[in-house]
Write a protein that binds this DNA or RNA. Structure first.
Length: 828
RNA sequence: GCGAGAGUGGCGGAAUUGGCAGACGCACGAGAUUUAGGAUCUCGCGGGCAACCAUGGGGGUUCGAAUCCCCCCUCUCGCACCA
C-alpha cells in the first residue's frame, strides 16, 4: 500500500517503535548507573531470576513493577541503580545435563542468552554493564572468601548430625527448604540421614534477626510475622535431671518451669545421644534399638501421626524432690528443638497427657485453674492454662506466672539449670552433594586434618570436565584432578572438599555485588557501596512472597555477617520490601500441566512490550494476585492505539516545546489545565506513595479522554501542557510508545531524562464547586457554590434549593453539618 | 490450633484521613460509519416500574459507615507434636 508518511504516522506499529527505542537506549547507555553526588541515590532491585530457559508472566510482572519505579525515580532526579543478573547455580542445570547430555554451564549460559534477549525485548531499563551470573568464578570467588572468613570466626563449621535428605535431588536440604515434610523444589518426602555437613551459624544472629524485624517498617507485616515465627524465640528454663545409677544427666528445655513438680516421666527424641546408650546391656536393649531404628527410618511428616514410645528401663531423678522418673523414647520429641528431651507433665501438656494415658503413666496436677478443681483420674485433657500451684513444695500457692521465675531461680541456685531462651531457628546447613554449585574452599590433609584453602589461592574453580551420572554421591568426588591437591599448610597430599554450597548462599549477597560487579580486587568497592547502599540498603526490593523465610532471612543474616567481617556498613539489606502477587489464569497459577500458560514471547509478538507491561500493571494492584485476561490485554492495546491517534491528530496544533502558558489561563482552557494537574497529582501519589499503578494508569486514561474532548477548542499552550504531561506520566509504564510520541510532538530531548511533572497548586483551584446535600442522611440535591464560599453562604444555598425544601417538608432544621468542599448534611 | 490477608456489579478492580459506592478497563446492549469486520466512533450498562434497596451476614457508634467497634460466616496464604 503506497503508504505516505502521514499514513505511517497514523498507524501505531509497536514492533517498529520498540525496536527503535531499544536500540537507542543501548547506543546511548541511557540507564548506566554512576554515583553522582549532585543527585540522591536510589537502588531498586527485583529478585534476580533463575535461568530456567524462558521468562514466564510472573517475571514480566515482577520486572515491570521494578521498571516503573526505576524510570519514575530517574525522572524525579535520582541517580538510579537498577541492575539484573542470574541466580545461575542449581539443580535444574545438572538434571538437564543428566537427561540431555548438555553440560550444565552450556545449558545455563544458553538459557541466560535467551532470557537476556527477552528482557531486552521488554525494554527494561537495566544497567546491563552490571549484569552478573553467580556461576562465574569471578562472582563466587568472593563467596569462598566470605566462607573462609566465617570459618575463621567460627561462623562456619562442620558437624555430623541427622539432616534432611531429598532422595530425588540426591542431596541435603536446609530446614527452610523442607516444606510440609517434602523438598521445596520437587516435593519428594524428605528422609533423615546421618551426615557430616557444613553449617553457617545463623543461630548466633537469632536475637538480632528477631530484634531488627522491628526496624523494618517498610516490610509487609506477614513477611515479618513469618520470620518471627520461623526464628521462634521462647523464654523458659533449662532443667537438668541427674541420671540414676550412673553419671550424667538429661537436660530439657521447658517454657513451663512452674509445672516442674508435675513431672512424671521423661521423653527423649529417637536421635537423642542417650537413646542408644541407656538401655545398653539391659533386657530393654533390643526393643529400644528396634524402636529407634523404626523411628529414624521415618520422615518428619510420617512421625507426626500418633504418640508412639518405648520405655528405656532407665530412670532419672527429679532435681528438687529426688523423685524417680522413668525415661521413655517418644516419637513426637524432636531432636532439632530445645535439647531433644522433654520433661513430661501430663496434667499440663496435651501431648504428654496423651502419651501418659496410652502408656499407663501417672498424672499429677500441680496447677489448679481458677474456679475449677482438676482431678487427675477423670480429667479428659491437659490443663495448659494458668492457675495456682498445688503440691509443689515451697512454691504451692503461687500464681503459675510468678512460679515460673521462682522455680527457674531455685534451679540455678541448685546448679540444676536456670532461665534460658530457646529458638526454633537452626543453623543453616549449606553442604550440597551436587556438582553445579560453588565449591567449599577447604581441603583435608592427611597430616593436618581440615585446612582452609589459603585466600590467595581462591577461587577454587569448579572443574568443567565432569561426568554426571545422576546416581548420587557428589560428582566432584569422582574427579581425581579436582580432589587430589596439596595441603595449604604443610604442602603434603590432601583431598578437596567435594560438597558445593547451597545456591541460597549466592543469592544472599548479590544485591551488594551489583555495586561493583566487575571489581577484581574487592568484593565491594567502598565508594560505590557507600553511595548505592550506604546504611540504607536497597531502597525497594521486589519479588514473590515464596522467599519469606528462605532468601529473605538468609540475606538478612549474610548482611549482618558481612558487616561484622568489615565488608559492609549495613544492618539490613532491604529497606523496603514489596511482595507482588501471583499471575493467575482460570483460577490457578499458570503451569504447563494445567495448560494455562501465556508465553511472554507470543504476547509481545502480537501486541508489543508496552501492551504486555501495561496490562501487568493495570489489571490489579501489584501486591494482589493478577487474573490474566486476554480481553483485558486487548483493552490495553486499544488504549495505546487510541493514544497514538489522538497525539497525531493534535500534534499540528501544538506550539513548540517549552511554550509558556499565558499568565492566567482563561476559562475554556481552565478545565483541561486543571485536569492535567489533578492527574499529575494522582499519578505521582499513586506511583511514589502507594505503588498502585492500576489507579495511576486509570487516571492517565481519564486525562487522555479529557484531552480528546477538549482538543478541538483548547488553546495551544494548554494543549501542549496536557500532551506533554500525559506522555511524561506514561513514560515509566510504556516507555517505547511514550518516547516515540514525545519525539513526534517536536521534542529533541530524550523522554527518559525529562523531569517528572510538578503539580501547580494554582491550577487545581476551582471557581465553583458542586456539593451534594444530604437531608436526614440521604443525598437529595446538588448545589453549586463559589469555591471560597463560607459556611453561612453554603448553608443558605442548600436551604434555597427546591428539592431540599421539598425533603425538609417544612420541618425545622435541627442540625446542619457543612464540610467545606465536600458536602452539606441537614437534619430535620 | 496460631499468625497474616481478603470478601464491593456479569468480570478485573476504584473509593488515600468516616463525606455523592461502583472511577478506569473488560464483557454486554443499542446506534453510527463501513463492501465487510473480531477495526473505529457515539450512547447505555448494580437491582427495582417506583418509593426505595444494595459493599459476605447480624448488631452498634455517627448528621453520615465499604471504611470505626462487637459478634458470626466464607475463602486464600503461611506455620504447626516447637516442649
Amino acid at each position: 500500500m503506497g503508504a505516505g508518511q502521514a499514513e505511517d504516522a497514523a498507524r501505531y506499529d509497536p514492533q517498529a517503535v520498540e525496536a527503535k527505542w531499544q536500540a537507542r537506549w543501548e547506543e546511548t547507555g541511557a540507564f548506566r548507573a554512576r554515583p553522582d553526588d549532585s543527585r540522591p541515590p536510589y537502588y531498586v532491585l527485583e529478585m534476580f531470576p533463575y535461568p530456567s530457559g524462558r521468562l514466564h508472566m510472573g517475571h514480566v510482572r515482577n520486572y515491570s513493577i521494578g521498571d516503573v519505579i526505576a524510570r519514575q525515580r530517574r525522572m524525579q532526579g535520582h541517580a538510579v541503580l537498577h541492575p539484573i543478573g542470574w541466580d545461575a547455580f542449581g539443580l535444574p542445570a545438572e538434571n538437564a545435563a543428566i537427561k540431555h547430555g548438555v553440560h550444565p554451564a552450556r545449558w545455563t549460559y544458553d538459557n541466560i542468552a535467551h532470557m537476556r534477549g527477552q528482557l531486552r525485548r521488554l525494554g527494561f531499563s537495566y544497567d546491563w554493564e552490571r549484569e552478573l551470573a553467580t556461576c562465574d568464578p569471578r562472582y563466587y570467588r568472593w563467596e569462598q572468601l566470605f566462607f573462609l572468613r566465617m570459618l575463621a570466626r567460627d561462623l562456619a563449621y562442620k558437624r555430623r548430625s541427622s539432616v534432611n535428605w531429598c532422595p530425588t535431588c540426591a542431596t541435603v536440604l536446609a530446614n527452610e527448604q523442607v516444606v510440609d515434610g517434602g523438598c521445596w523444589r520437587c516435593g519428594t518426602a524428605v528422609e533423615l540421614r546421618e551426615l557430616e555437613q557444613w553449617y553457617l551459624r545463623i543461630t548466633a544472629y537469632a536475637e538480632e534477626l528477631l530484634r531488627d524485624l522491628d526496624r523494618l517498617p517498610g516490610w509487609p507485616e506477614r513477611v515479618v510475622a513469618m520470620q518471627r515465627n520461623w526464628i521462634g524465640r521462647s523464654e523458659g528454663a533449662e532443667i537438668r535431671f541427674p541420671l540414676e545409677g550412673r553419671d550424667g544427666e538429661v537436660a530439657v528445655f521447658t517454657t513451663r518451669p512452674d509445672t516442674l513438680f508435675g513431672v512424671t516421666f521423661m521423653s527423649l527424641a529417637p536421635e537423642h545421644p542417650l537413646a542408644g546408650t541407656l538401655a545398653a546391656g539391659t533386657p530393654h536393649e533390643a526393643s529400644v534399638a528396634a524402636f529407634v531404628a523404626r523411628m529414624r527410618a521415618r520422615g518428619r511428616s510420617e512421625r507426626a501421626v500418633g504418640k508412639e514410645g518405648i520405655a528405656t528401663g532407665a530412670f532419672c531423678r527429679h532435681p528438687l524432690t529426688g523423685a524417680r522418673l522413668p525415661i521413655y523414647i517418644a516419637s513426637f520429641v524432636l531432636m532439632e528443638y530445645g535439647t531433644g528431651a522433654v520433661m513430661a507433665v501430663p496434667a499440663h501438656d496435651q501431648r504428654d497427657f496423651e502419651f501418659a494415658r496410652a502408656h499407663g503413666l501417672p498424672v499429677t496436677v500441680v496447677v489448679q485453674p481458677e474456679g475449677e478443681r482438676l482431678d487427675p483420674a477423670t480429667m479428659p485433657s491437659a490443663w495448659e492454662g494458668p492457675g495456682t500451684l498445688v503440691d509443689s513444695g515451697e512454691f504451692s500457692g503461687l500464681a503459675s506466672e510468678v512460679a515460673k521465675g521462682r522455680i527457674a531461680e531455685t534451679l540455678a541456685a541448685h546448679g540444676r539449670g536456670g532461665p534460658t531462651v530457646s529458638y526454633r531457628l537452626r543453623d543453616w546447613g549449606i553442604s550440597r552433594q551436587r556438582y553445579w554449585g560453588a565449591p567449599i574452599p577447604v581441603v583435608y590433609c592427611e597430616r593436618c586434618g581440615m585446612v582452609p584453602v589459603p585466600e590467595e589461592d581462591l577461587p577454587v574453580v569448579l572443574p568443567q570436565d565432569v561426568t554426571l551420572s545422576g546416581r548420587g554421591g557428589s560428582p566432584l568426588a569422582t574427579h581425581d584432578a579436582f580432589v587430589r591437591t596439596q595441603c595449604g599448610r604443610c604442602g603434603g597430599p590432601a583431598r578437596r572438599e567435594t560438597d558445593t554450597m547451597d545456591t541460597f548462599v549466592e543469592s544472599s549477597w548479590y544485591f551488594a555485588r551489583y555495586c561493583s560487579p566487575a571489581d577484581e580486587r574487592e568484593a565491594f568497592a567502598p565508594a560505590e557501596v557507600a553511595y548505592w547502599l550506604g546504611s540504607r540498603g536497597v531502597d525497594e526490593y521486589i519479588g514473590g512472597i515464596e522467599h519469606a523465610v528462605l532468601h529473605l532471612l538468609y540475606s538478612r543474616f549474610f548482611t549482618k555477617v558481612l558487616r561484622d567481617l568489615g565488608f559492609l556498613a549495613l544492618d539490613e539489606p532491604f529497606r523496603h520490601l514489596f511482595t507482588q502477587g501471583m499471575v493467575i489464569k482460570d483460577g490457578a497459577a499458570m503451569s504447563k500441566s494445567r495448560g494455562n500458560v501465556v508465553e511472554p514471547d507470543d504476547l509481545i509478538a502480537r501486541y508489543g512490550a508496552d501492551t504486555a507491561r501495561l496490562f501487568c500493571l493495570f489489571a490489579a494492584p501489584p501486591e494482589r494476585d493478577l487474573d490474566w485476561s486476554d480481553a483485558g490485554v486487548e483493552g490495553m492495546s486499544r488504549f495505546l492505539h487510541r493514544l497514538w491517534r489522538l497525539v497525531h491528530r493534535v500534534r499540528d496544533r501544538l506550539p513548540p516545546p517549552g511554550t509558556p502558558l499565558p499568565p492566567a489561563v482563561a476559562t475554556p482552557d481552565r478545565d483541561l489545565h486543571r485536569l492535567t494537574h489533578v492527574t499529575i497529582r494522582r499519578v505521582t501519589d499513586d506511583v511514589v506513595g502507594r505503588l498502585h499503578f492500576n489507579t495511576a494508569i486509570s487516571a492517565i486514561m481519564e486525562l487522555t479522554t479529557g484531552l480528546d474532548e477538549a482538543a478541538e477548542n483548547a488553546g495551544g499552550a494548554v494543549l501542549r501542557e496536557a500532551v506533554d504531561a500525559a506522555l511524561k506520566l506514561l513514560a515509566p509504564f510504556v516507555p517505547h510508545v511514550a518516547s516515540e510520541l514525545w519525539e513526534a510532538t517536536g521534542h529533541t530531548t530524550s523522554l527518559d531524562v525529562e523531569r517528572w511533572p510538578a503539580v501547580d497548586p494554582a491550577a487545581l483551584v476551582q471557581e465553583a464547586v458542586e456539593l451534594p446535600v444530604q437531608v436526614n442522611g440521604k443525598v437529595r440535591a446538588h448545589i453549586t457554590v463559589a469555591a471560597g464560599a463560607d459556611e453561612t453562604q453554603v448553608l443558605a444555598a442548600a436551604l434555597a434549593d427546591a428539592r431540599v425544601q421539598a425533603h425538609l417538608g417544612g420541618r425545622a432544621l435541627r442540625r446542619h453539618v457543612v464540610v467545606p468542599g465536600r458536602l452539606v448534611s441537614l437534619v430535620a
